[in-house]
């Protein structure tokens, strides 16, 4: 199912310990910068796949193995959570 980063707001909070939908992600493939909320997200696969809306490059993969979240952020060159307003 193809959604966007809003749909994994809860999971991102669980993984990073803070609200992340407005965190700015920089794509390692094309350099596009945008909020995680606007990324392309595939749910309910073996893992949650987050892709760049500009180039479709994989930004991040989150998989749960025996209840532990494993996070691959190899497709990001930067991820900046904004300061809580």
């Amino acid at each position: 199912m193809m959604l966007d980063g809003n749909a994994i707001g809860g999971l991102l909070h669980e993984v990073f310990g803070t609200e992340m939908t407005d965190a700015e992600a920089t794509c390692a493939t094309c350099g596009a910068v945008g909020p995680l909320a606007e990324t392309v997200v595939y749910l309910r696969g073996p893992g949650t796949v987050v892709r760049c809306r500009n180039c479709s490059g994989v930004l991040m993969v989150i998989s749960q193995i025996h209840g532990v979240n494993c996070v691959d952020v190899g497709g990001l060159t930067a991820l900046d959570p904004r300061r809580a307003g």
Binding site: G10, E19, L36, R82
Partner: peptide, 9 residues
């Protein structure tokens, strides 16, 4: 449940 969630939308 858990929330509230989201700061972009």
């Amino acid at each position: 449940l858990r929330g509230p969630i989201g700061r972009w939308f």
